[in-house]
Design a protein around this nucleic acid. Structure first.
Ligand SMILES: [Mn+2]
Ligand SMILES: [Mn+2]
Ligand SMILES: [Zn+2]
Ligand SMILES: [Zn+2]
Lengths: 150, 150
DNA sequence: GTTGAAGTGATAATCATTTTCATCTAGCTT
DNA sequence: AAGCTAGATGAAAATGATTATCACTTCAAC
């Protein structure tokens, strides 16, 4: 059996996105893909340490940024400015309603917004229009946990 | 003539929003209102120093945050995470198409998005749903300045 | 196997924003 | 017209996420 197959188990698509194939990058990608919803670089870093795949924080940042640049991760900023990443399996693009308490992210039907963005871009005269649409609130579970107190 | 009228020239509405009426706060608000579009705290701070109304950077931050909390300023984050503030004369809330080259910001008709947000929030079960909608692109003028080359 | 470019990571640097805290003052009380 | 005090100021230090350095390691082409 071969010694080093750092990318074993990762989609071939992901492998092509970044330069050299290293154990560290493979571990970062696996960790990112294993997370439901958004994660910060620091949280991912410590989670990997706990899981026995310690990687330098610098490398976590580098890999996540490269992945985001390649369009394979969504990036949002939480309220205190920290950047959160989420793996995006396909080239499709979605928007989410994120719980500000527990981080749960629920995909929403953004068709109407996409249509509006396209129309607005077309009639504005602007070129190369990009959009950011973020919804955040308290999920049903977290809403309940807040209510009981009086 | 009275000596101290720090809030002279400011809408009475704004005066009610913050606690004590000080010269510094009045100057920050005047400076913010004088700016077209978004400004960062640091930029506003140095602009005020240049204009002969020096105020501590801490006070600029405090006043802008208070103003934003009161709903009288819009806040966005630029690409490197800096928070930019813009005065909002009324309680209405708008969205803008911002030119990434020259900073020009053009208000867009966001009715459809607001409707979509409300509907999405209602059917999601989430509480206290907030939204962020940002459009960015190249304005017609800046598009032209890029084209001539070749 | 040799080799050079790319990657790693501990550490230091950046940089916007917040906290501290000694000092000041707006604006009410007497 | 003082006196009073909670609220405000701001220089300086702390914070905290992210990025730059750089000596060292490793991938992968030859
Ligand atoms: Mn979209
Ligand atoms: Mn809106
Ligand atoms: Zn929740
Ligand atoms: Zn422009």
């Amino acid at each position: 059996m071969p010694r080093n197959r750092p990318y074993a188990g990762l989609p071939a698509r992901e492998v092509a996105l970044i330069g050299r194939l290293t154990q560290q990058r493979a571990n970062v990608l696996k960790a990112l893909m294993a997370v439901e919803g958004f994660v910060g670089a620091q949280a991912l870093h410590s989670r990997m340490a706990d899981d026995g795949s310690p990687v330098g924080l610098t490398t976590v940042y580098r890999t996540l940024n490269a992945f985001a640049d390649a369009g394979r991760a969504d990036v949002v900023r939480d309220d205190n400015g920290e950047r959160l990443f989420r793996y995006r399996p396909g080239p499709d693009h979605r928007h989410y309603l994120v719980c500000t308490a527990c981080g749960l992210s629920m995909p929403v039907d953004s068709g109407p917004v996409e249509d509006w963005v396209e129309k607005t871009a077309r009639t504005s005269g602007f070129a190369n229009v990009r959009h950011t649409v973020e919804l955040a609130g308290l999920c049903p579970d977290c809403t309940q946990e807040q209510a009981p107190a009086r």
